[in-house]
């Protein structure tokens, strides 16, 4: 079953456009949604959730169309845009007291379990929590209302390496039973290398790739060669950098002839992102 099924989502702004966004997430997996700043990650997520009016396209979450079942689906989705940053002068206890009333499946025991697990003190004010703790508080809230799909926008940005690692471990634990699915956007690619099963890569409002992590990495080649070799592949490359030793650049595996003698390696997610971002600079 698909936890998330986005098809041909379009949204036009005067200076920016989401074009034909389509991707699917199987239930029980973690999908990383990556892209540079301003690539359209948050806009896509907000469009999926009906927070932004889309021009065309269809969004199905847990098998149901969000346009028709918005409130029903929001009962089963845990949403977080970063950490909690509303009513930050209120105590967690007060905030939770208000929020839990909205959810039919709220489980107070689960809530306390996660508070203990995340070492959150209910009597603290939200403003007193660190960025990482705010993300964890948000997660505790989402998990306590029995969310089947977690949609998290940049949950790890701004966290220290230890807190990030801890959070990623939690993500992996959550999906073990196959009941919960997670979509999280980030520009920190190392997070995804640690825990994502699938990667969806967005660049300038378009989905460049959406596939299993290793498949995505294998579909590109990082080339390294002399300047004379560059001329052989120049036209097919996504982008490249020239230095005094020759060039380094990214190419689609399908466009690369392994018999050409150019040194090729599997790129990291970060390299893929960088060379895609560079592509735009080169052609502007």
């Amino acid at each position: 079953m698909l936890a998330l099924d986005i098809r041909n989502l379009n949204k036009k702004y005067p200076n920016f456009e989401l074009r034909d966004i389509s991707f699917q997430l199987e239930k029980g997996y973690i999908m990383g949604f990556i892209g540079a700043n301003g690539a359209g990650k948050t806009t896509t997520i907000k469009s999926m959730l009906n927070m932004i009016r889309i021009d065309s396209g269809e969004v199905r979450i847990l098998g149901k169309n969000i346009a028709e079942h918005e409130t029903e689906l929001k009962q089963e989705i845990g949403l977080a845009f970063g950490g909690v940053d509303f009513y930050t002068r209120s105590k967690l206890k007060v905030m939770t007291g208000v929020i839990k009333k909205f959810y039919k499946n709220w489980d107070q025991d689960t809530y306390y379990k996660y508070l203990r697990r995340f070492k959150l003190d209910e009597n603290k004010k939200i403003a007193e929590l660190s960025a990482g703790m705010r993300v964890k508080y948000n997660l505790a809230l989402a998990l306590s209302h029995g969310a089947k799909l977690l949609i998290l926008d940049e949950p790890t940005s701004g966290l220290d390496p230890a807190a990030r690692d801890d959070l990623l471990d939690i993500f992996q634990e959550l999906v073990v039973d196959g009941e919960i699915s997670i979509l999280f956007s980030t520009h920190i690619t190392s997070d995804l290398e640690k825990c994502a099963d699938y990667i969806t890569f967005i660049d300038n409002g378009q989905i460049v790739a959406s596939s299993e992590k290793n498949e995505l990495l294998e579909s590109y080649r990082l080339l390294n060669g002399s300047e004379s070799q560059l001329n052989q592949v120049k036209d097919k490359m996504i982008s490249y950098k020239v230095n005094s030793f020759g060039f380094t650049g990214l190419i689609r595996s399908s466009d690369f002839d392994s018999g050409s003698g150019i040194r090729a390696a599997t790129p990291s997610l970060e390299e893929i992102m960088i060379y895609f971002a560079r592509k735009e600079v080169m052609y502007v």
Binding site: E70, Q75, L79, F81, F86, Y87, F102, Y103
Partner: peptide, 14 residues
């Protein structure tokens, strides 16, 4: 100031 619009929009309400 408290970003109420975003908070409310995240809740399961119409």
């Amino acid at each position: 100031a408290h970003n109420d619009l975003m908070f409310t929009s995240l809740m399961p309400v119409t």
